[in-house]
């Protein structure tokens, strides 16, 4: 099979792409999409370690499934927040939301 470190390398690259997106994008929805990329990188790692470690122990897949649940909750609340902010400020640029900035 493909060596384990190839999967880890793809996962690391995907995580760093998502990190770049979170740090550099201005639009809040684009930041949320980059967070999705980072969560998927974590999922690839979980499933790859499950497969190459102890495939008879299903815990790796179970944790990946919990990551799905948390991602769905996170994106629902995040998009609701963004839409609410857009209603009040007519903007989805993250730098414009500076109400709690000291």
């Amino acid at each position: 099979m493909v060596p384990l470190y190839m999967y880890l390398l793809v996962s690391a690259a995907l995580f760093c792409i998502g990190l770049y997106g979170v740090l550099s994008r201005r639009n809040a929805i684009a930041i949320l999409m980059s967070i999705e990329l980072m969560l998927n990188a974590a999922n690839i790692n979980l499933v790859a370690f499950w497969r190459y470690g102890q495939p008879e122990n299903i815990s790796g897949q179970a944790f990946a499934a919990f990551v799905f649940v948390v991602a769905a909750a996170e994106v629902a609340v995040g998009l609701a927040l963004i839409i609410n902010i857009y209603r009040q400020r007519r903007s989805v640029v993250a730098d414009d939301v500076d109400l709690m900035k000291w």
Partner: peptide, 26 residues
């Protein structure tokens, strides 16, 4: 859901997609 949110907040093509710290982020 993300596509719905993009449709509801019509700033699809921003003038600058990335902020001024993108070099540090890279």
């Amino acid at each position: 859901l993300i596509i719905f949110a993009i449709m509801l907040t019509p700033q699809v093509t921003a003038t600058r997609p990335s902020n001024n710290q993108w070099i540090a982020a890279l």
